[in-house]
C-alpha cells in the first residue's frame, strides 16, 4: 500500500511539472502500430490529409450508436469533403471475434471511410478512449486534436460540420467551448 501511495504522489508531481508545457508534438495522434482493413501493418502517425481536417472515430460493428454516427455522416460525407476537405478515419476496436467481419460490414454499409483495425486496443489505450464508444476526435490541418466527443446523439454531426468549416476557414478553434 505504501508503494501505491508513493506511486500516486510521484505521478501527481510528474503531472504538475508537465502541465504547463508547450510543444509542437502536443495533441497529435500517438504513433502506434495498428492494421489497415486488409490486416497490413499501419503506423498511426502516418495519418494525414494534406493540410485538411480529419475526423478520427473509434467504433465497433456491435455498437449501435457508432454505426448510427457513421451511417449519418456517410449521407453527407461527399458534401463535407467538398466543402472542408475532411477525411474520416474509422478505427474499429472490434476484437478478434469480429475482425474478419469489419471489411464486409464496411462494404455492406457502402461507407467511404479509411478504416483501421485496432484489435489489440493499442491505439484505444494510447488515446485514453474508454470502453464507451463512439469516441470522436477532430484534428485540424496540422494534425492537432482540437475537439473530442464521447457518445453520439443525432445532431452531433452538425456540430462536427460547423467545426470543420471553421478549421477550413483557418480559425483557431483550440479554445472553443
Amino acid at each position: 500500500m505504501k508503494k501505491s501511495i508513493l506511486f500516486i504522489l510521484l505521478a501527481c508531481i510528474s503531472l504538475a511539472g508537465f502541465s504547463q508545457t508547450t510543444n509542437d508534438k502536443a495533441g497529435r495522434i500517438p504513433s502506434v502500430m495498428v492494421k489497415n482493413i486488409h490486416r497490413q501493418p499501419f503506423k498511426t502517425d502516418s495519418i494525414s490529409n494534406h493540410g485538411n481536417p480529419i475526423i478520427l472515430s473509434f467504433w465497433a460493428t456491435w455498437c449501435v450508436n457508432c454505426v448510427k454516427e457513421l451511417n449519418k455522416i456517410q449521407t453527407v460525407y461527399d458534401d463535407w469533403k467538398e466543402e472542408t476537405g475532411v477525411k474520416l478515419v474509422a478505427v474499429s476496436i472490434d476484437d478478434s471475434r469480429y475482425t474478419s467481419r469489419v471489411l464486409p460490414f464496411v462494404n455492406g454499409k457502402a461507407w467511404d471511410y479509411e478504416v483501421l483495425l485496432d484489435d489489440n486496443w493499442d491505439l484505444k489505450r494510447a488515446m485514453n478512449v474508454g470502453d464507451d464508444i463512439p469516441y470522436t476526435f477532430i484534428l485540424d490541418g496540422t494534425g492537432k486534436v482540437v475537439y473530442t466527443h464521447k457518445g453520439f446523439a443525432d445532431g452531433d454531426e452538425e456540430i462536427y460540420f460547423d467545426l470543420l468549416k471553421r478549421i477550413k476557414a483557418g480559425e483557431d478553434i483550440s479554445k472553443i467551448k
Partner: peptide, 28 residues
C-alpha cells in the same frame, strides 16, 4: 517506481529542457 521518480525529478527541477517541453501527459 524508479522511472516515475526519475520523471518527477525532471519535471520539478529541469523545467525548460527539451525532455519536458516535448513530453506529454494524458489519461482518463
Amino acid at each position: 517506481l524508479a522511472g516515475l521518480g526519475f520523471l518527477s525529478f525532471f519535471s520539478v527541477s529541469v523545467q525548460g529542457q527539451d525532455f519536458i517541453k516535448n513530453a506529454e501527459i494524458h489519461g482518463n
